[in-house]
Design a binder for these strands. Structure first.
Lengths: 207, 207
DNA sequence: CGAAAACCGTACCGGCGGTACAGGGGATTT
DNA sequence: AAATCCCCTGTACCGCCGGTACGGTTTTCG
């Protein structure tokens, strides 16, 4: 029981790295079993087919992703009472975390999956959709708290504002990967931070 | 001579749609030749291998992409004299164009390529990088013009601000694809528009 | 008309996803 | 101590796919 879980986790580790660099189609099972030191039969003992691997991979990724966000924004909540300050601090903590990744962000599996729609069954696509909706709910909740205290200086749909956080993260990953500038992602998060700050903070009255 | 170009273009059309839905690894040559009504020999007459197809695909995509941006922002420049108003109008035109796509944005090949790095040679990756840098230069130029007239209300790096446009587009594509909400992309562009408006427009009349 | 361009047909190779099935070792239960 | 279950290994095989090789044929254009 314990041993099986461990092997399974090792396969997922190897697969995740490979998939994020070459896509699902570009990742061969032979390659995965070679790197994990397992046989083909062993692989198919853990995963019925490549689709099952993809699903397990995605679910594990999402779980881990949620855990990280929980940690960061819980910590930010502890450090600041005001919901806006807390959110802005959370973005700063997130930017720091992203900035500290040695080789830059490895890539987001949610993005990978959405660029492979025809290859996977509805189940996986639905899991992917739910992940994005979970992000929306998370950030929507934060913006709702902010809006109790602050009034946005531009009319804005709260769901669209919440999605903006995910958008910047996904887009930032693409840009920093394409440019091979690992720092780019953190920078974009900080630009978003400036925008949110501007949106809610009352302007300095000039005279 | 004329006929060859036409067939080549047809292959690229079919390949682009397939690649954006299934990735390069998930797109088979057999499938492409079946849909274009060509033979395998015919295919390899036009493209040495799959890598050559990828390169041609990417280059054509980038070219077309640039053309669209040229059109939109040239038109915006004609309709508004002020650089800020012109840029904001451009984003609105862009959002309208994205909104009018019947099945939503089909996906960005630049993003696809950057999620497949290990599968392609340096040549393609460099082409991809240059495309993103071209976007940066384009939008940087616009923000420079804006900054001649307006002062940003938050300290911000101009390159990072320029990249924000690409970030929102790439991220918006990912989100709208994952959620299967075609409208999402245009919405995100409009949120960005609000942010840029806030960043440059003085809230209080200067005296 | 002739030559080059634009294909077609066929045969073949190795790699990959996936299946089938038989068996084995080690830990746990009875 | 025996039985059982989990976690694999080994082998053989299938069909699809990317790619090569190469000879032949049609189409196009000067």
């Amino acid at each position: 029981m314990r041993k099986g879980e461990e092997t399974r986790a090792r396969i997922l580790d190897v697969a995740e790295a490979a998939v994020l660099q070459k896509g699902f189609g570009g990742t061969s099972i032979d390659e995965l079993i070679a790197e994990t030191g397992i046989t083909k039969s062993g692989f198919f003992y853990h995963f019925r087919d490549k689709n099952a691997l993809a699903k397990a991979l995605l679910e594990r990724y999402i779980e881990n992703d949620e855990r990280i966000y929980d940690e960061i924004f819980t910590r930010a909540r502890e450090l600041a009472d005001d919901p806006l300050q807390s959110f802005l601090l959370g973005l700063k903590l997130l930017a720091e975390l992203l900035s500290d990744l040695p080789n830059g962000h490895p890539g987001c599996l949610v993005a990978t999956v959405c660029y492979y729609e025809r290859l996977f069954d509805r189940d996986i696509q639905e899991t992917n959709k739910q992940a994005v909706l979970a992000w929306r709910r998370r950030f929507r909740g934060m913006f709702e708290e902010i809006m109790v205290v602050y009034t946005p200086r531009e009319p804005i749909e709260i769901d669209q504002l919440a999605d903006m956080v995910s958008t910047v993260l996904e887009g930032g990953i693409v840009l920093s990967k394409a440019l091979k500038e690992p720092q780019g992602l953190a920078d974009q998060v900080l630009v978003l931070r400036s925008f949110v700050k501007l949106l809610f903070q009352p302007p300095i009255v000039r005279q």
